[in-house]
Design a protein around this nucleic acid. Structure first.
Lengths: 261, 261
DNA sequence: ATTTGTGAATCTCTTCACAGCT
DNA sequence: AGCTGTGAAGAGATTCACAAAT
């Protein structure tokens, strides 16, 4: 899901699969909940259920970190919380800057899970001079002019881009030039970055479109499985049916003028 | 990344790989940009560059949709926009409800890319009675009591959950009971849903933690490649080094008391 | 009696490389 | 001459199933 380079360019070192890394935060969250309830140990089966994955996968994932379980017993919750935190690099506090303090940027700044667990909002940056000095989530917004200074003096290596799409690439370049090497991009654009910089992308409309695809598929199946689609499904049926049954080869007749922009 | 069932339970039908589906929105966005600049055709190489993927992958992806290109020439932009839109189910308008109109919910409601391209915000729902009637993004917020009524009368099948984590599962169940079959979850919780319901998850802190992992890895490599880590890298080096070199088998000495909650 | 840790089998996704079409 | 479409190879991720450990 990272849009940037494939990563893992230099030393291959001890390679934890990317898919596993992506699940560690999930396990960590489930474990933290158990820890708060003072549960001492947990089996792979239980923890897997809490994290929404299957237990074989969870055990394989943990096997990449080492042998932290006890056969016949399970995993020590506290110990595992520590090991995963350490593996993820959360035993230190990462200063983060958020660029673009619109609706979304403000929402991110206010997001609680941010401040806790390893991350600290070091600065909020916006291009609008009218925003400068305004407090958002208890932090005064600073102007984009300060960007390089902020990054360098705070040793920021993680940046969050919540600007409009048009500004994202430029902001990205300034962040990278100033020393940021990991970017979380909320702007609906593909960012181009040099090697060694990681980009992850969060994109609302992409997620919705993926859901729409499956939703359409469901409507299509419903229609072709039993002949009696209900409610709105009726309206979708014709359209969806066409999509499902349409031949795959070449222009199939009804090319409409243009799509909605 | 869908947290729900693995999907594709019943009719296997014409199976477009999930990884391909996840990239179609990316292609669509790049194509739309080309379309706006009135570019008539595009090669797999060019389009792949614009979408940030490699061209073989793009061609393979398109091959699942059908043979929509012309050898020696490339793809017709308008035609491809239409085909992908249709495949994704965007030739119809999906009514969407957003539940939880806090900072994030408001940001989502205001998000422009929402209204355009296939989705329409049918309602904003919040549990706070004080919010009821307040306009957000030009739409009056409605109280949670209305949830079932809104879903049913608007034929909503896609719901967005932007509530606090504690409320998410309950909201999810009400949405599903009322007829929603696709959920985009912004709350940091694993949602449990019945078969046939799709869940996709957007989780800020997971994304940040994945970045932190790679960031830490970079610091470790830097430290072990050349012996002279600079700036903050120096501070991280000892910690990261320990993580990289620590043996994988069993308790490695210094188990600290507990992690930061 | 349980539950982990992991080879081996399987499935999915990506990349290669080139035949086939325009 | 140029570019698509795709079999085949390769890489990665998931699941199975069971030996090893407590």
């Amino acid at each position: 899901m990272a849009t940037g380079r494939t990563h893992r360019p230099a030393t291959r070192s001890r390679g934890i699969p990317e898919a596993t890394v992506a699940r560690l935060p999930l396990y960590l969250r489930a474990l933290t909940a158990l820890s708060e309830r003072s549960v001492p140990t947990v089996s792979s089966e239980e923890l897997a259920a809490a994290a929404g994955v299957n237990s074989a996968k969870l055990r394989k994932d943990f096997s990449y970190l080492g042998s932290y379980g006890t056969r016949g017993v399970g995993y020590d919750v506290e110990y595992l919380v520590y090991q995963i935190s350490r593996e993820l690099g959360l035993t230190q506090d990462w200063p983060v800057v958020i660029v673009g303090i619109g609706n979304l940027g403000a929402a991110l700044a206010n997001y609680g899970g941010f401040a806790s667990r390893g991350f600290r909002v070091a600065a909020l940056i916006d291009a609008d001079p009218a925003m400068a000095g305004k407090p958002v989530a208890g932090i005064a917004v600073q102007h984009t002019d300060e960007l390089e200074h902020i990054i360098e003096s705070n040793g920021v290596s993680i940046g969050v881009i919540a600007t409009p799409a048009g500004a994202a690439q430029q902001v990205c370049e300034r962040l990278v030039a100033a020393g940021v090497t990991s970017i979380l991009n909320f702007a609906p654009t593909v960012l181009t970055v040099p090697d060694g910089v990681d980009v992850r992308k969060v994109d609302l409309s992409i997620e919705l479109q993926i859901l729409a695809f499956h939703e359409q598929r469901k409507a299509g199946e419903e229609a072709s499985e039993n002949g009696a689609p209900a409610d709105r499904a009726a309206a979708l049926a014709a359209e969806a049916e066409a999509a499902v049954t349409g031949d795959r080869k070449g222009p199939d007749g009804d090319l409409p003028a243009v799509m909605p922009a």
